[in-house]
Amino acid sequence: MEFFRKTLDPIIALAAIAVLDIFMFLLMGAWTVGGGETMMTGLMAQAVLGDELNRIPFWSVVFPPHADYWKIYISLGMLFGAFVGAVASKEFYWRVPRHLSEWVLITIGGLLMGFGIRLAYICNVSTFFGLMPEMNLGGYLAMSGIIAGAWVGSLIYKKLLEGDV
């Protein structure tokens, strides 16, 4: 099938996702990532810690773990859809970062993303495709934050590429 042979124009892909996102907005709420991951974190922590988790109020006050939280399934769906797309277009193969520096950067990056999402109550998807189109005040705060962060991140990255650090 042509779809699995050629790279799709991202404008077409995102326009299609936007139309579907409008249906999501009408049914349940706009496309969001972060809430699902938090719930997964809570469920995993519960599996490991059991009742001990009650000693951390966040998990009873802000995010009591529930497996039937719909946002979890958006993320699992993205993993599944990408896997199907990669296999069908023969683009699936194991890719492993080669250098220790890459592993370190990914680890720090992941930690910052997880911490940042929870501090803000939202992630970048909700910023671009939820809060901003709803013209929520938080969208403009988040947008300024992420642009400033990406700028600082790019500066750090450039320095690292140039070997200054």
Binding site: G109, M113, I117, A120, Y121, A148, A150, V152, I156
Partner: peptide
């Protein structure tokens, strides 16, 4: 303030990790 600060940290993180949550 947390909305700005959280996404600021997220912005640095996503560039370092080379990918966002999606």
């Amino acid at each position: 303030l947390n909305t700005f600060a959280g996404l600021f940290l997220f912005g640095i993180g996503m560039v370092l990790a080379g990918a966002c949550t999606v």
